[in-house]
Simulated scan of single mutants.
Amino acid sequence: MGMRRRSLLGRAAAIGAASAVGAVGSVLATAAPAQAAVWKKRLTGADLDTNSRWRVAGTDLGIPYVLENGSIGYLFGDTFDTPWPEGPPLPNDWRSPVMLRSAVHPGAPGGVVFDSAARVAGNGRAPELMHNGHHGIGIDGLPEVTVIPNDGISFPETGRQVISYMSIENWNSAGPAGPQWKSRYAGLAFSDNGNDFIRTPLKWWNSPDNKDPFQMWTMQRDGDHVYVFSVRSGRQDGPMMLRRVRWDRLFYPESYEGWGWNGTNWGWGRPCTPILTGRFGEPSVRRLSDGTWVMSYLNCQNGCVVTRTAPGPDRAWTAEKIQVTSWQEPALYGGFIHPWSSRDADDLHLMVSKWTRTPDGRSTAYHVSQFVGSV
């Protein structure tokens, strides 16, 4: 997620997980002792057609979501036409966010295959989807380092797509135990043509101490509501919160309902109470076709991408299950769930980023791969 600020998470991490609090307040067990997912293919890179067709070489994230036409959009963060952020050469066409698209099922023998890019007719340079300050001034007149996507969602009723994003204030790391970056605010952008996204004036401001738990969003619709799971920016210790809002009221902050504990029971329409606590990376939540909800994130304490499941967004989540370890993919992060995954054996598809660097900070890999596991 971005340039010049990630430590090599999990370089010598042991496999294990901290306990966490579930949506009914019970303490959950520790993670399963072995990884479940296996590497399937690398999706991006200077040597692949993502570069030769759309100049998407070094990039990360690859957040998949269903578009209004039923195919899949993949949101990438800081993107370059060189293998990694620092080049060479420079300048290296820094863009964020960028979207590639695919109608291919990730479970096909060849895995994910991209067929187009947003804002491009056929082959050609894939431009960024929305305004980005790029170490200058953002669209609202505030300093902005970059814009990083959190998740996407679409609404077939209107043909509209919505992206949640962070406006990054700085990448100043507070050390291994502290935040690795600070967002200025979380925001929403929309598109009515599937290509050009407009950043709305809505802002969920971060606190001066970087502790606001509503900065990194993942969104999943179920019926009339969109359920929003969120954590602090910077992969730091803190709570995970749950809110919901009617799908047609997404741009009305007063319509968001918190899921909270009042000392007796859980309910909607209350101040948010943490549903989980831990040191979370970017969260990803998807509802599978059989109704199972799956959550994934980087556990920043052990350096593994893990998943949990629940029968509903406001139900208790299972213990963590390790999907990808740092031994499989050094310096990993992400782990975004493909919405066409299922509960069938070996049909959980995760987009996992890798950014490896030498001790003096020179990159040796910066790309996205597809991993396949099971829930």
Rank of each mutant, 00 (worst) to 15 (best):
S374M: 07
W268N: 07
W293Y: 15
P91E: 02
W268I: 11
V306T: 13
T273Q: 06
S96I: 04
L250C: 07
L9K: 10
V27H: 00
S71D: 15
P271Q: 15
R315I: 00
T218K: 10
H131G: 13
E257P: 05
E128S: 14
Q180N: 11
W181C: 04
N262V: 02
E282K: 07
V372A: 02
P339A: 01
N195Y: 01
L202M: 15
P156K: 15
L8K: 05
T292D: 08
V98W: 03
T364P: 05
G267E: 06
L43H: 01
R357P: 00
P283I: 04
D115L: 01
R5P: 01
F80S: 04
V372L: 02
P149S: 12
N92W: 04
P176N: 08
K40E: 09
K203E: 11
G159D: 11
D347K: 02
W205G: 00
V120M: 11
L48F: 13
E144R: 05
F76R: 01
A29H: 09
W247N: 09
T218I: 08
L28N: 11
T309W: 07
D60F: 00
M240T: 05
D224S: 15
G107E: 04
T292S: 09
L9I: 14
G152H: 02
L142T: 10
W266E: 09
I163V: 15
Y65E: 02
R357F: 03
T325P: 10
S96N: 07
F280V: 04
A117S: 09
M240K: 08
T146L: 09
T309H: 07
A103M: 03
L28D: 09
G133K: 08
I63H: 03
E282H: 08
G194E: 02
E329R: 12
K354S: 13
R160F: 00
V113E: 15
G361N: 13
P143E: 03
I337T: 04
V147D: 00
F76H: 07
C300Y: 03
P149M: 09
S71K: 10
F214A: 14
T264V: 14
P143T: 05
G258M: 08
A126S: 07
S255K: 11
G111W: 05
M1N: 12
D192F: 03
P85N: 09
G87D: 08
E68L: 01
G260Q: 06
L348T: 04
A345D: 14
P274R: 04
M130W: 05
I63E: 02
S255Y: 07
D237W: 14
